[in-house]
Design a protein around this nucleic acid. Structure first.
Lengths: 213, 213
DNA sequence: GGATTGTCCTACCAGCGGGTAGTATCAGCC
DNA sequence: GGCTGATACTACCCGCTGGTAGGACAATCC
C-alpha cells in the first residue's frame, strides 16, 4: 500500500465519519421539529457548516431522510441476524428480538424511521427500498410466531395480527420516549413483553392472583 | 322565527355542511399524501372549488389540519362519555372504550389526528389544545386501569405503561389499516383485546391449552 | 330600484427554501 | 514551483405554494 493509497484510505474513513455526523445531526433535528419543518440550512447551521457542504455528501434533502432511515433498517437487519440462530423457543426468540428492537427505537435513527418514513415524504423508489426492509422484519416476526405456535410456546393465534399489535406497541415508543425521562429502554421492553406474554386480565375465580402472581 | 331568521338558520347549516365537506376532503388527501405534500390547491381541486373558497371557511392551512384533528378528538370525547357511566368492571370498561376507539382510528379524521398531529406541524397554542384533549383520554384510561386493579378484574400493573402499550397497538392501526382491506374494525378490536386480556404465552406445563383454551 | 350582505372567483403577490455556479483553499505529487 | 483533485464556501437563482386584493353575482332588505 503506497503512501497515497493510505491517504486515500484515511480520507475514505474521514469521509464516512463526516457523513455519519451529518446523518446524526439531521436525524436529531428531524425528530425535534419534523422533516418538513427542517430546512437544509437548519441542518447546516447545527453542524456549523455551509449548505453546499451537505450537498457534497448527499444527493438531495430526501436522500438525507432516506439515509437516516436506512441507518435504522441496517441496525434492524443486524438484530435479525443475532436472533435468528439462537437455540430457544419461539416466544423466547420474540422476546430477544423485541428487547433489541426497543434499543433501536430509542435512538434518533429509529425514531426517524418510524415517524418520518410512513408519510409520503419519499419518492416511490426509495420508499420501496425501505419498505422491503421493514417488510422483511414483519415476515420474520410472523415466522417466529408461527414457530412459537408449533413448538408450543405461543398459543394458537393469527401471527399477522399479533405482529401488528406488538409492532404497534413498540413503534409507538418513538412518539413518547424521552432519553432524559424516567423510563429506561430495558424496563420498557420487560414490561411490554410481560403484558404480551401473560395478558392483564385476572382469570375468573382467580382474583387471588391480584395480590402476587 | 321570522322568515329571515329561518333563512339565516338554513344558511348556518349550509355553511356548517360545507365546512365539514372541506374537512373530510382535506383529511382524506392528508392521509394519502401527507400534510406537507398537500397544497391548498390540491384540496380546492378535489372539491372543485377555488382556493379563496377555502380561506372563506378557514383561517389558514394549519387551521385546516387543526379542525380535522379536532373533529377526531371530539369523537373521542363523546366516546369517553358513553363509556364512563357503564356499570361494568374496569377491564370491561377498557374493552368498551377501545372497541369504540378502533372505529375512530379507522376514519380519516382519526388517522389524521394520529399521523399528522404528533409532528411539529402545529403552532404551540393549537397543538396545546389538541394535546390536552388526548391527555385527558390518557388519564381516563389510566384511571380505568386503576379501577380495574381495584375491582380485581385487572392484575396489578403500572397503569401508565399498560396505557402506552394499548394506545400504541391501537394507534398503530392508522398506519396499516385500509378500509378496502380484509380486516374489519370490530375484528381487529376483538383480536387485540383478546391478546391484551390473556396474553399469548402458553403457561408452563399447560401446553394442552394450545389446542383449545 | 338601490343598498347591503353573503358567497365565491380570477388574478396576482411575495417569501421561503431547495438546489447550484463558480471559486477559494489546501494536500499531495512531479 | 506549478499541476491536480478533493473539499468547502459565498453568493445567487427560481419555482412552489400559502395567502390576498378586489371584483362579480345573487339574494335579501327597505
Amino acid at each position: 500500500m503506497t503512501q497515497t493509497a493510505f491517504a486515500r484510505e484515511v480520507s475514505k474513513e474521514a469521509r464516512e465519519a463526516k457523513r455519519m455526523a451529518i446523518l446524526e445531526a439531521a436525524a436529531k433535528i428531524f425528530n425535534e421539529r419534523g422533516y418538513h419543518s427542517t430546512s437544509m440550512s437548519d441542518v447546516a447551521d447545527a453542524l456549523g457548516v455551509s449548505k453546499p457542504f451537505l450537498y457534497y455528501y448527499l444527493k438531495d434533502k430526501e436522500d438525507l431522510l432516506y439515509q437516516c432511515s436506512r441507518a435504522a433498517t441496517e441496525q434492524l437487519h443486524a438484530l435479525l441476524d443475532e436472533v435468528r440462530d439462537a437455540k430457544v423457543s419461539g416466544w423466547q426468540r420474540l422476546e430477544m428480538l423485541f428487547r433489541r428492537y426497543v434499543h433501536v427505537m430509542t435512538t434518533d435513527f429509529g425514531v426517524c424511521l418510524i415517524r418520518n418514513t410512513a408519510q409520503g415524504n419519499m419518492n416511490p423508489e426509495r420508499r420501496q427500498k425501505l419498505w422491503t426492509g421493514r417488510r422483511r422484519l414483519n415476515r420474520e416476526v410472523e415466522r417466529i410466531v408461527a414457530e412459537g405456535i408449533a413448538d408450543g410456546s405461543i398459543r394458537s393465534c393469527d401471527p399477522k395480527k399479533l405482529s401488528f399489535a406488538m409492532f404497534g406497541a413498540f413503534n409507538w415508543i418513538t412518539f413518547w420516549y424521552r432519553a432524559d425521562g424516567p423510563q429506561k429502554p430495558e424496563t420498557i421492553a420487560d414490561y411490554f413483553l410481560d403484558i404480551f406474554a401473560r395478558g392483564v386480565v385476572v382469570p375468573a375465580g382467580r382474583e387471588d392472583l391480584n395480590a402476587r402472581p
